[in-house]
Protein backbone atom coordinates (compact mmCIF):
# COMPACT_ATOMS: atom_id res chain seq x y z
CA UNK A 1 0.00 0.00 0.00
CA UNK A 2 1.38 3.36 -0.91
CA UNK A 3 -1.35 4.94 1.11
CA UNK A 4 -0.14 7.08 3.92
CA UNK A 5 -2.61 7.95 6.56
CA UNK A 6 -1.06 10.95 8.19
CA UNK A 7 -3.87 13.45 7.90
CA UNK A 8 -1.88 16.44 9.06
CA UNK A 9 0.74 16.09 6.37
CA UNK A 10 -1.76 16.36 3.57
CA UNK A 11 -4.74 17.98 5.12
CA UNK A 12 -5.41 20.43 2.34
CA UNK A 13 -4.39 20.86 -1.22
CA UNK A 14 -1.65 23.22 -0.04
CA UNK A 15 1.91 22.03 -0.03
CA UNK A 16 3.21 21.15 3.39
CA UNK A 17 6.77 22.22 2.66
CA UNK A 18 9.18 23.16 -0.10
CA UNK A 19 8.25 24.18 -3.62
CA UNK A 20 5.45 22.12 -5.04
CA UNK A 21 6.14 20.45 -8.35
CA UNK A 22 2.91 21.64 -9.85
CA UNK A 23 0.61 24.32 -8.59
CA UNK A 24 -2.67 25.18 -10.21
CA UNK A 25 -4.34 28.18 -8.66
CA UNK A 26 -7.81 29.52 -9.27
CA UNK A 27 -7.82 28.11 -12.78
CA UNK A 28 -10.72 29.12 -15.01
CA UNK A 29 -10.99 27.71 -18.51
CA UNK A 30 -13.47 28.99 -21.07
CA UNK A 31 -14.33 27.86 -24.55
CA UNK A 32 -15.83 31.13 -25.83
CA UNK A 33 -17.03 29.68 -29.12
CA UNK A 34 -18.58 26.48 -27.83
CA UNK A 35 -19.75 27.25 -24.34
CA UNK A 36 -19.97 31.05 -24.19
CA UNK A 37 -18.95 32.59 -20.92
CA UNK A 38 -19.59 29.50 -18.79
CA UNK A 39 -16.29 28.38 -17.29
CA UNK A 40 -15.67 24.71 -18.08
CA UNK A 41 -13.12 24.61 -15.29
CA UNK A 42 -14.18 26.97 -12.55
CA UNK A 43 -11.70 28.04 -9.89
CA UNK A 44 -9.58 24.90 -9.59
CA UNK A 45 -6.79 24.75 -7.00
CA UNK A 46 -4.49 21.76 -7.15
CA UNK A 47 -1.01 21.22 -5.78
CA UNK A 48 1.22 18.23 -6.40
CA UNK A 49 4.43 17.79 -4.46
CA UNK A 50 7.42 15.87 -5.78
CA UNK A 51 6.83 12.14 -5.54
CA UNK A 52 3.19 12.45 -4.56
CA UNK A 53 0.27 10.59 -6.15
CA UNK A 54 -2.90 12.63 -6.53
CA UNK A 55 -6.17 11.55 -8.08
CA UNK A 56 -8.76 13.56 -9.96
CA UNK A 57 -12.11 11.79 -9.81
CA UNK A 58 -15.41 12.46 -11.54
CA UNK A 59 -17.79 11.36 -14.29
CA UNK A 60 -17.21 11.92 -17.99
CA UNK A 61 -17.72 15.54 -18.86
CA UNK A 62 -16.62 16.88 -15.48
CA UNK A 63 -13.42 18.40 -16.84
CA UNK A 64 -10.94 15.82 -15.53
CA UNK A 65 -9.03 15.44 -18.77
CA UNK A 66 -9.07 19.16 -19.39
CA UNK A 67 -7.47 19.68 -15.98
CA UNK A 68 -4.81 17.14 -16.96
CA UNK A 69 -4.12 19.06 -20.14
CA UNK A 70 -4.02 22.38 -18.28
CA UNK A 71 -1.53 20.92 -15.81
CA UNK A 72 0.71 19.95 -18.71
CA UNK A 73 0.26 23.33 -20.36
CA UNK A 74 -1.37 21.65 -23.32
CA UNK A 75 -4.78 23.33 -23.42
CA UNK A 76 -6.29 23.45 -26.92
CA UNK A 77 -6.01 26.71 -28.82
CA UNK A 78 -9.77 27.29 -28.65
CA UNK A 79 -9.56 27.61 -24.86
CA UNK A 80 -8.92 30.82 -22.97
CA UNK A 81 -7.81 30.57 -19.40
CA UNK A 82 -6.92 32.65 -16.40
CA UNK A 83 -5.49 31.82 -13.05
CA UNK A 84 -2.01 30.44 -12.49
CA UNK A 85 -0.32 27.21 -13.48
CA UNK A 86 3.16 26.90 -12.03
CA UNK A 87 5.57 24.10 -12.79
CA UNK A 88 8.53 23.93 -10.40
CA UNK A 89 7.61 27.39 -9.15
CA UNK A 90 7.60 28.99 -12.56
CA UNK A 91 4.48 30.36 -14.17
CA UNK A 92 3.90 28.58 -17.47
CA UNK A 93 2.72 31.84 -19.04
CA UNK A 94 6.09 33.45 -18.44
CA UNK A 95 8.03 30.52 -19.86
CA UNK A 96 10.03 31.02 -23.02
CA UNK A 97 9.50 28.62 -25.89
CA UNK A 98 12.54 26.56 -24.99
CA UNK A 99 11.43 26.38 -21.38
CA UNK A 100 8.02 25.11 -22.43
CA UNK A 101 9.70 22.55 -24.62
CA UNK A 102 11.87 21.44 -21.72
CA UNK A 103 8.79 21.13 -19.52
CA UNK A 104 7.00 19.02 -22.10
CA UNK A 105 10.09 16.98 -22.86
CA UNK A 106 11.76 16.15 -19.61
CA UNK A 107 9.32 17.55 -17.05
CA UNK A 108 5.98 15.92 -17.69
CA UNK A 109 5.09 12.53 -19.13
CA UNK A 110 1.59 11.67 -20.32
CA UNK A 111 -0.11 8.29 -20.39
CA UNK A 112 -3.38 8.37 -22.28
CA UNK A 113 -6.38 6.10 -22.12
CA UNK A 114 -6.23 4.59 -25.55
CA UNK A 115 -2.81 3.22 -26.40
CA UNK A 116 -3.85 2.30 -29.92
CA UNK A 117 -4.42 5.89 -30.91
CA UNK A 118 -1.45 7.34 -29.03
CA UNK A 119 1.21 5.13 -30.61
CA UNK A 120 2.29 5.59 -34.19
CA UNK A 121 0.85 2.59 -36.07
CA UNK A 122 3.46 2.75 -38.81
CA UNK A 123 6.60 2.76 -36.68
CA UNK A 124 8.15 -0.09 -34.77
CA UNK A 125 8.23 0.19 -31.00
CA UNK A 126 12.03 0.36 -31.20
CA UNK A 127 12.04 3.45 -33.38
CA UNK A 128 9.38 5.17 -31.29
CA UNK A 129 11.37 4.57 -28.12
CA UNK A 130 14.71 5.53 -29.70
CA UNK A 131 13.23 8.73 -31.02
CA UNK A 132 12.53 9.82 -27.47
CA UNK A 133 15.59 8.34 -25.78
CA UNK A 134 17.89 10.16 -28.23
CA UNK A 135 16.71 13.42 -26.70
CA UNK A 136 18.31 12.50 -23.42
CA UNK A 137 17.40 9.60 -21.21
CA UNK A 138 19.10 7.74 -18.41
CA UNK A 139 17.94 4.40 -19.77
CA UNK A 140 18.04 2.51 -23.03
CA UNK A 141 14.89 1.42 -24.87
CA UNK A 142 15.50 -2.18 -23.78
CA UNK A 143 15.80 -1.13 -20.15
CA UNK A 144 12.62 0.85 -20.37
CA UNK A 145 10.70 -2.09 -21.76
CA UNK A 146 11.93 -4.43 -19.07
CA UNK A 147 11.22 -1.84 -16.38
CA UNK A 148 7.56 -1.86 -17.37
CA UNK A 149 7.53 -5.61 -16.98
CA UNK A 150 7.69 -6.64 -20.62
CA UNK A 151 9.53 -9.82 -21.46
CA UNK A 152 10.72 -10.78 -24.93
CA UNK A 153 11.94 -7.22 -25.40
CA UNK A 154 13.57 -8.16 -28.72
CA UNK A 155 10.31 -9.24 -30.26
CA UNK A 156 8.46 -6.23 -28.90
CA UNK A 157 11.11 -3.81 -30.15
CA UNK A 158 10.66 -5.21 -33.66
CA UNK A 159 6.84 -5.09 -33.50
CA UNK A 160 4.45 -2.42 -34.59
CA UNK A 161 1.61 -1.46 -32.24
CA UNK A 162 -1.00 -3.63 -33.96
CA UNK A 163 1.10 -6.73 -33.30
CA UNK A 164 0.92 -6.24 -29.54
CA UNK A 165 -1.91 -6.93 -27.12
CA UNK A 166 -3.77 -4.11 -25.37
CA UNK A 167 -1.89 -4.61 -22.11
CA UNK A 168 1.47 -4.66 -23.89
CA UNK A 169 0.61 -1.45 -25.75
CA UNK A 170 -0.36 0.27 -22.52
CA UNK A 171 2.96 -0.80 -21.00
CA UNK A 172 4.85 0.55 -24.01
CA UNK A 173 2.99 3.81 -23.54
CA UNK A 174 4.10 3.94 -19.92
CA UNK A 175 7.67 3.18 -21.03
CA UNK A 176 7.50 6.11 -23.44
CA UNK A 177 6.25 8.40 -20.69
CA UNK A 178 9.11 7.27 -18.44
CA UNK A 179 11.77 7.67 -21.10
CA UNK A 180 12.92 11.16 -20.20
CA UNK A 181 12.74 10.59 -16.45
CA UNK A 182 9.91 13.08 -15.90
CA UNK A 183 9.18 14.53 -12.50
CA UNK A 184 5.44 14.31 -13.12
CA UNK A 185 3.39 11.71 -14.94
CA UNK A 186 -0.16 12.50 -15.90
CA UNK A 187 -2.14 9.31 -16.39
CA UNK A 188 -5.51 9.99 -17.96
CA UNK A 189 -7.75 6.94 -17.43
CA UNK A 190 -4.77 4.68 -18.17
CA UNK A 191 -6.68 1.44 -17.71
CA UNK A 192 -10.18 2.12 -18.97
CA UNK A 193 -9.62 0.42 -22.31
CA UNK A 194 -8.28 -2.75 -20.67
CA UNK A 195 -10.06 -5.74 -19.19
CA UNK A 196 -9.94 -6.39 -15.46
CA UNK A 197 -6.99 -8.75 -15.25
CA UNK A 198 -4.76 -6.50 -17.33
CA UNK A 199 -6.12 -3.43 -15.56
CA UNK A 200 -4.93 -4.84 -12.27
CA UNK A 201 -1.44 -5.52 -13.68
CA UNK A 202 -1.08 -2.03 -15.12
CA UNK A 203 -2.17 -0.38 -11.88
CA UNK A 204 0.28 -2.48 -9.89
CA UNK A 205 2.99 -1.53 -12.35
CA UNK A 206 2.26 2.18 -11.98
CA UNK A 207 2.39 1.86 -8.22
CA UNK A 208 5.67 -0.03 -8.26
CA UNK A 209 7.26 2.41 -10.70
CA UNK A 210 6.06 5.34 -8.69
CA UNK A 211 7.79 4.00 -5.60
CA UNK A 212 11.01 3.06 -7.38
CA UNK A 213 11.36 6.08 -9.66
CA UNK A 214 9.81 8.63 -7.35
CA UNK A 215 7.89 10.61 -9.89
CA UNK A 216 4.76 12.49 -8.98
CA UNK A 217 1.56 11.10 -10.42
CA UNK A 218 -1.63 12.84 -11.44
CA UNK A 219 -4.07 9.96 -11.79
CA UNK A 220 -7.28 10.79 -13.62
CA UNK A 221 -10.04 8.21 -13.26
CA UNK A 222 -13.69 7.56 -12.57
CA UNK A 223 -12.94 4.26 -10.89
CA UNK A 224 -12.88 4.80 -7.15
CA UNK A 225 -11.47 1.35 -6.48
CA UNK A 226 -8.39 2.10 -8.57
CA UNK A 227 -8.01 5.57 -7.13
CA UNK A 228 -7.88 4.21 -3.61
CA UNK A 229 -5.16 1.79 -4.59
CA UNK A 230 -2.88 4.24 -6.31
CA UNK A 231 -3.17 7.65 -4.71
CA UNK A 232 -2.89 9.25 -1.30
CA UNK A 233 -4.80 12.39 -2.06
CA UNK A 234 -7.84 12.94 -4.25
CA UNK A 235 -9.87 15.78 -5.66
CA UNK A 236 -13.45 15.06 -6.67
CA UNK A 237 -14.48 17.18 -9.62
CA UNK A 238 -18.04 17.91 -10.63
CA UNK A 239 -18.83 20.03 -13.71
CA UNK A 240 -15.49 21.79 -13.54
CA UNK A 241 -15.51 22.54 -9.84
CA UNK A 242 -13.71 20.77 -7.01
CA UNK A 243 -16.46 19.61 -4.65
CA UNK A 244 -14.41 17.63 -2.17
CA UNK A 245 -10.70 17.10 -1.72
CA UNK A 246 -8.41 15.56 0.87
CA UNK A 247 -6.72 12.27 1.76
CA UNK A 248 -8.10 9.53 -0.52
CA UNK A 249 -8.81 7.21 2.38
CA UNK A 250 -10.82 9.76 4.31
CA UNK A 251 -12.88 10.71 1.32
CA UNK A 252 -13.68 7.16 0.32
CA UNK A 253 -14.36 5.87 3.80
CA UNK A 254 -16.46 8.82 4.76
CA UNK A 255 -17.67 10.84 1.81
CA UNK A 256 -19.21 14.13 2.89
CA UNK A 257 -20.26 15.64 -0.42
CA UNK A 258 -23.48 14.13 -1.82
CA UNK A 259 -21.78 13.73 -5.21
CA UNK A 260 -18.84 11.75 -3.81
CA UNK A 261 -21.22 9.66 -1.81
CA UNK A 262 -23.35 9.11 -4.92
CA UNK A 263 -20.35 7.88 -6.91
CA UNK A 264 -19.42 5.51 -4.12
CA UNK A 265 -22.94 4.21 -3.68
CA UNK A 266 -23.19 3.54 -7.40
CA UNK A 267 -20.01 1.44 -7.32
CA UNK A 268 -20.89 -0.31 -4.12
CA UNK A 269 -24.41 -1.12 -5.23
CA UNK A 270 -23.15 -2.82 -8.37
CA UNK A 271 -20.46 -4.66 -6.50
CA UNK A 272 -22.72 -5.86 -3.73
CA UNK A 273 -25.70 -6.59 -5.91
CA UNK A 274 -28.31 -4.53 -4.16
CA UNK A 275 -31.87 -5.22 -5.25
CA UNK A 276 -32.05 -1.71 -6.54
CA UNK A 277 -28.82 -0.22 -7.82
CA UNK A 278 -28.13 3.33 -6.73
CA UNK A 279 -27.20 5.50 -9.68
CA UNK A 280 -26.89 9.26 -9.47
CA UNK A 281 -30.00 10.44 -11.31
CA UNK A 282 -29.53 12.27 -14.60
CA UNK A 283 -26.18 13.11 -16.10
CA UNK A 284 -23.62 15.88 -16.16
CA UNK A 285 -25.18 18.81 -17.99
CA UNK A 286 -23.74 20.64 -20.92
CA UNK A 287 -21.89 23.73 -19.64
CA UNK A 288 -24.59 26.08 -20.98
CA UNK A 289 -27.34 24.22 -19.13
CA UNK A 290 -25.61 24.04 -15.76
CA UNK A 291 -27.68 25.37 -12.88
CA UNK A 292 -26.51 28.51 -11.15
CA UNK A 293 -25.04 28.27 -7.68
CA UNK A 294 -24.15 24.68 -6.77
CA UNK A 295 -23.75 22.94 -10.11
CA UNK A 296 -24.77 19.59 -8.66
CA UNK A 297 -28.06 20.76 -7.22
CA UNK A 298 -30.34 19.48 -9.99
CA UNK A 299 -29.13 15.94 -9.35
CA UNK A 300 -28.79 16.19 -5.59
CA UNK A 301 -31.28 14.76 -3.12
CA UNK A 302 -30.17 17.13 -0.38
CA UNK A 303 -30.52 20.34 -2.40
CA UNK A 304 -32.54 23.21 -0.94
CA UNK A 305 -33.11 26.88 -1.69
CA UNK A 306 -29.74 27.70 -0.17
CA UNK A 307 -28.06 25.89 -3.06
CA UNK A 308 -28.77 28.69 -5.55
CA UNK A 309 -25.66 30.37 -4.18
CA UNK A 310 -22.37 28.65 -4.89
CA UNK A 311 -20.97 26.95 -1.77
CA UNK A 312 -17.37 27.91 -0.97
CA UNK A 313 -14.67 25.28 -0.60
CA UNK A 314 -14.19 25.15 3.15
CA UNK A 315 -11.96 23.20 5.47
CA UNK A 316 -13.74 20.44 7.31
CA UNK A 317 -11.46 18.16 9.29
CA UNK A 318 -8.84 16.68 7.02
CA UNK A 319 -10.53 17.79 3.82
CA UNK A 320 -11.95 20.68 1.86
CA UNK A 321 -15.62 20.55 1.05
CA UNK A 322 -17.96 22.68 -1.06
CA UNK A 323 -21.52 21.95 -0.01
CA UNK A 324 -24.33 23.69 1.85
CA UNK A 325 -25.74 20.40 3.09
CA UNK A 326 -22.87 17.97 3.50
CA UNK A 327 -23.44 14.54 4.94
CA UNK A 328 -22.72 14.66 8.66
CA UNK A 329 -19.20 13.58 9.66
CA UNK A 330 -18.54 10.07 10.94
CA UNK A 331 -22.06 9.10 10.03
CA UNK A 332 -21.96 6.45 7.38
CA UNK A 333 -25.66 5.88 7.72
CA UNK A 334 -26.62 7.63 4.51
CA UNK A 335 -25.13 4.99 2.33
CA UNK A 336 -23.81 2.12 4.39
CA UNK A 337 -27.13 1.57 6.08
CA UNK A 338 -28.62 1.24 2.67
CA UNK A 339 -25.86 -1.19 1.83
CA UNK A 340 -26.91 -3.29 4.79
CA UNK A 341 -30.50 -2.99 3.80
CA UNK A 342 -29.65 -3.97 0.25
CA UNK A 343 -27.87 -7.11 1.33
CA UNK A 344 -30.60 -8.01 3.71
CA UNK A 345 -33.16 -7.67 0.97
CA UNK A 346 -31.25 -9.80 -1.46
CA UNK A 347 -30.65 -12.35 1.28
CA UNK A 348 -34.39 -12.55 1.84
CA UNK A 349 -35.26 -12.59 -1.82
Amino acid sequence: MVLTSDPTAQCTMDAPSGTPLLRVQDLHVHFPKRHGNVPVLDGIDLTINPGEAVAVVGESGCGKSLLGLAAANLLPAAATWNGAVEFRGQDVRSMSRSQVRRMHGAGVGMVYQDATSSLNPGMTIASQLRQICRLGSSSTPEDLLSSVGLQETDRIMRSRPHQLSGGQRQRVLIALALARDPALIIADEPTTALDVTIQRQVVQLLRALQTSRRFALLFISHDLGLVSEVTSRAAVLYAGQVVETGPTNDILLEPRHPYTSGLLRASMSIEQRWDRLAPIPGQVRQPRDLPTGCRFRDRCSRASDACVTRPALQTSGSRLLACHHPLPPSDQSSWTSEANEGTRRSANG
Binding site: V196, L224, G225, S228, L252, E271
Partner: peptide, 27 residues
Protein backbone atom coordinates in the same frame (compact mmCIF):
# COMPACT_ATOMS: atom_id res chain seq x y z
CA UNK B 1 -9.30 -11.52 -7.75
CA UNK B 2 -8.54 -8.97 -10.45
CA UNK B 3 -11.87 -7.16 -10.33
CA UNK B 4 -11.47 -3.93 -8.42
CA UNK B 5 -13.52 -4.41 -5.30
CA UNK B 6 -14.15 -1.20 -3.53
CA UNK B 7 -15.43 -2.97 -0.46
CA UNK B 8 -12.33 -5.05 0.11
CA UNK B 9 -10.03 -2.16 -0.76
CA UNK B 10 -11.78 0.00 1.75
CA UNK B 11 -11.83 -2.67 4.40
CA UNK B 12 -8.12 -3.30 3.98
CA UNK B 13 -7.19 0.36 4.17
CA UNK B 14 -9.02 1.05 7.39
CA UNK B 15 -6.46 1.93 10.05
CA UNK B 16 -5.99 -0.86 12.56
CA UNK B 17 -7.50 1.00 15.50
CA UNK B 18 -10.68 1.81 13.60
CA UNK B 19 -11.04 -1.72 12.37
CA UNK B 20 -10.66 -2.94 15.93
CA UNK B 21 -13.29 -0.56 17.22
CA UNK B 22 -15.60 -2.05 14.64
CA UNK B 23 -16.99 1.14 13.16
CA UNK B 24 -16.50 0.50 9.51
CA UNK B 25 -14.59 -2.59 8.60
CA UNK B 26 -17.06 -5.27 9.70
CA UNK B 27 -19.81 -3.72 7.61
Amino acid sequence: AAAPRLASVMASTVPANEAASGTIAPT
